[in-house]
Design a binder for these strands. Structure first.
Length: 490
RNA sequence: GGGCCCGUAGCUCAGGCCGGUAGAGCAGGCGGCUCUUAACCGCAAGGUCAGGGGUUCGAAUCCCCUCGGGCCCGCCA
């Protein structure tokens, strides 16, 4: 990489620092406290007053320096936030004061030690007695006021966005906190968290193109998983009763504002329960996540909107009734494939001519019903034709026991009372193969074999974790809730 | 896959329609300033205008191609 003029100047400062016997990249900074500790220590002080006795060691990234001749203010920022450092030539000595200021730049990692002080204008600060360079930044940071705006740079150099933007740091910490909350909810309900393989010979459990790779050892083609469903159901065959997995799945598809080729999902399977039980659990989970997000993001109007949408009661929409109502076509579920195709065409859909009735129904629902959701909404009891892995409805003919959860603009989750008849499963796998050729549900023969040993009646759900985080943090693009989203190499 | 838009200094952005020596702020350099908080004041410096080709006396600007990105549609859960 070419060295820029700015980098050359910063390297010269490193050399000066070394030549004066100081290490620009020391090993540690012991006894360091968070900036918030100093701010608390300032709470009892009057403007202009210096705290008695205790000194504090803080460390963080230097953001700005404001020099006023023989006094200077610097701002260092750690994970708890910014803290002002007060430097005075009186007290520090002219030589030390000038020496520090000459060779420090925004972006450097610093340690500082001194007592708490409140500036005359009331800013909680640390009065610097000693300053330690902990890591010299050779590359200059993004502009201090606007931060990093370029979308491409924000994603490719996520660390730059993070170091320049406390909001970005907060967004990703909230992500982790919400994932923790999801784990606790399942753990407390007695689910066992498991890990199932990412690599395997068959990518099954959803209709999506897999990433294909190769094992040198086995000399076999392998695929990255596209869903977690089938291995988890095998564990119910094995008697684990309540299991969940939270991890990444991979789909070899386009990246857009709600789809990422590498994404985080949660799937849970619950023996001896049905989709009513799971819906009640999901509602409780969502309410819990809304509370947690409200606690973590009290001042974000964007998050507020999503958080309110996550609070019960949640509207329920019957797939068939709502589609009939919104299209003005009573009995739409019993229409022929050709009639549905024509309706889909009228709605502007260009799905292929040969698509199944299920595909046309999905398109119509997407066009007429989904845009009407203004909060978290449960869609229930889909037509059998749209859903290959669910059990048929116990009282509604032609339907399955299924619910989908929507947030305005995208789907959050999908749940069924699971199919557990192995012969029925095999038949539905074969039908799916027929429709989409190589790109449909892969036929997982071993899964059918497992089911022949007896899968208990059960219910299961898949949740899009990235999307839940988008909703609850008010983030419009999935790329901004994934630390390092997939990008073209350059 | 189709359409529209964007790429100018380390960063944030003007300039582009209507072609004529490339501009500002921040950051950096030098000087000044003892309470600022987007500190301030002065001076000097900083450019492969994404890359390539074309039109033209002359291209950041107009045209074509390529690369990277964004948005919408399609496809995909």
């Amino acid at each position: 990489m070419d060295e820029t003029r700015l980098e050359a100047e910063r390297r010269a400062k490193v050399a000066r620092w070394r030549s004066s016997g100081r290490e620009p990249y020391p090993w540690a900074f012991e006894g360091r406290v968070a900036s918030s500790v100093v701010r608390s220590a300032c709470a009892g002080l009057r403007p202009g007053e210096t705290g008695e006795g205790a000194t504090y060691r803080v460390a963080g990234r230097l953001r700005t320096v404001r020099e006023h001749g023989r006094t200077a203010f610097a701002v260092v920022e750690d994970l708890d936030g910014p803290l002002q450092l007060l430097l005075r030539a009186d007290g520090l000595g002219e030589e030390a004061y000038r020496g520090w200021l000459a060779d420090l730049d925004p972006g450097d990692i610093l340690g500082a030690e001194g007592p708490a002080v409140v500036s005359r204008s009331g800013e909680p600060s640390l009065e610097v007695r000693t300053l330690t360079l902990l890591a010299k930044a050779i590359a200059p940071p993004p502009e201090k006021f606007h931060g990093l705006q370029d979308v491409e740079e924000r994603i490719r150099g996520r660390y730059l966005e993070l170091l320049a933007s406390p909001g970005a740091r907060q967004r990703f910490r909230v992500r982790t906190a919400l994932i923790g909350e999801i784990r606790r909810a399942f753990d407390e309900a007695g689910f066992t968290e498991v890990e199932t393989p990412i690599l395997g010979p068959v990518a099954s459990g959803a209709a999506a193109a897999p990433f294909v790779t190769h094992s040198n050892y086995l000399n076999e083609e392998l695929r990255l998983r596209i869903a977690l469903e089938l291995p988890l159901k095998r564990l119910l065959v094995g008697g684990l009763e309540k299991v969940y997995e939270l991890g990444k799945s991979f789909r070899n598809e386009d990246l857009d504002s709600t789809h990422s080729p590498e994404f985080t999902e949660l799937e849970a399977y619950w023996a001896y329960a049905d989709y009513h039980d799971l819906r009640a659990f999901t509602e409780g989970l969502f309410a819990r996540l809304a509370d947690r997000a409200a606690e973590l993001l009290p001042d974000s109007p964007a998050a507020r909107k999503g958080i309110d949408a996550f609070r019960p009661p949640f509207p329920t929409v019957d797939f068939g009734e709502e589609l009939a109502r919104r299209t003005g076509q009573p009995g739409i579920l019993s229409k022929s494939r050709e009639e549905l195709r024509d309706l889909a065409r009228q709605a502007g859909s260009t799905v292929p001519e040969r698509s199944s009735t299920g595909t046309f129904l999905d398109k119509l629902f997407e066009h007429y019903v989904e845009p009407t959701f203004d909060r978290v909404t449960f869609v229930v009891d889909h037509p059998e034709a749209t859903t290959p892995l669910a059990k048929r409805h116990r009282s509604k003919p032609g339907r399955v026991e299924r619910f989908e959860v929507f947030f305005p603009g995208f789907e959050l989750g999908n749940a069924y009372t699971e199919l557990n008849d192995p012969d029925e499963q095999e038949r539905r796998f074969r039908e799916q193969l027929g429709e989409r050729g190589g790109d449909g549900y892969a036929f997982d023969a071993d899964f059918v074999r497992a089911m022949r040993y007896g899968l208990p009646p059960c219910t299961g759900i898949g949740l899009g974790v990235d999307r839940i985080v988008m909703a609850l943090t008010g983030t419009p693009s999935i790329k901004d809730v994934i630390l390092f989203p997939l990008v073209r190499s350059r």
